[in-house]
Amino acid sequence: MVACALAVLRIAHTPDPDDAYMFYGIVSGAVRIPGFDRVEHIVEDIETLNRRLVEEGWEVEVTAASAHAFAYIAERYYMMVAGASMGEGYGPIVVSRRPLRSLEGAKVAVPGRYTTARLLLRLATGGGYQEIFARFDRIPDMVLRGEADAGLLIHEAQLTYREMGLVKVIDLWEWWSNTAKGLPMPLGVDIVSKRLGLETAQALRKALQESIRYAWNRHTEALEYASRFARSGTREQLDKFVRMYVNERTLDMGPEGRQAHILLYQMAWDEKLIPEPVEPEFV
């Protein structure tokens, strides 16, 4: 058993179906966490978590975060090799009401200052557009109403934008694939406070891996739970989305996943898009 002074373990994650799915084993009580009497769940959208971590100095035992946000808090948190959302063959996209040749001078709705999608778009294009920060789930309607010329989509809207009458302008996976030479695309991560110590952090990572396996083994049950958090799309689209972002790479990002994060931070530092060089400590 891992010794820990804290009886209550706080786990923060997003109300997104993929996060809900992977934490189902823990939420249901099927996966027990050594050293903790109970688990307290905090559910917030990803940019709220990012801002609390980066701007407020929030300390929580385990939380989801954008890989971009991690660059600002790497001295305080370990990065888990489990729980990461990584694109392979898909990723964030930019959409508009009609085809655009360029984003130069356009008003682009982006899902938060610290999201990885925002960082990737800046790396891919070099900027030149006007950012409008908005909750990710408001962005399609902002584009449809003309409040923004284009929108950067994450989560389920990547699958449903055509049904909304929107067209794809930029596919960030295509850019990343050409740039990263086959590495998966970093998007979201789960992180553990370093104040817990390495041994406890490793135990928490193993618990998350067990929780993911539990959901896989009870896929219909776990998907039903995750569906409570879905904002759009059919059951089939939800199933597809969960399978896209809860996969073997989520269980363990592997050496390619580690290399991808290191590359992202090197590229971001080279362009001075993050405050300092980052070398993640993986658990």
Results as ranks from 00 to 15, higher is better:
233 G>N: 07
138 R>H: 10
86 M>H: 02
133 F>Y: 15
65 A>H: 07
103 L>I: 12
42 I>V: 15
141 D>C: 03
180 A>Y: 03
259 Q>E: 15
172 L>H: 00
257 G>D: 02
263 L>H: 07
236 E>K: 14
200 T>F: 03
139 I>G: 08
144 L>D: 04
142 M>W: 12
206 K>F: 12
149 D>Q: 08
256 E>P: 05
146 G>V: 05
153 L>A: 06
16 D>A: 12
34 P>D: 00
86 M>A: 11
74 A>K: 07
171 D>L: 08
275 P>D: 09
249 R>Y: 04
39 V>T: 14
183 L>M: 12
105 G>L: 11
189 V>R: 06
128 G>C: 01
32 R>W: 10
135 R>N: 11
130 Q>E: 15
135 R>A: 14
175 W>M: 02
16 D>P: 01
216 W>L: 05
209 Q>D: 05
111 P>R: 08
23 F>S: 12
67 A>I: 07
41 H>C: 13
39 V>L: 01
168 K>M: 15
112 G>E: 13
3 A>M: 04
123 L>T: 00
249 R>L: 11
230 A>E: 04
249 R>H: 03
273 L>H: 12
166 L>F: 05
50 N>R: 02
103 L>R: 02
235 R>K: 07
112 G>S: 04
10 R>C: 00
140 P>F: 03
94 V>G: 06
64 A>T: 11
114 Y>V: 10
8 V>I: 14
168 K>F: 04
271 E>D: 14
22 M>H: 07
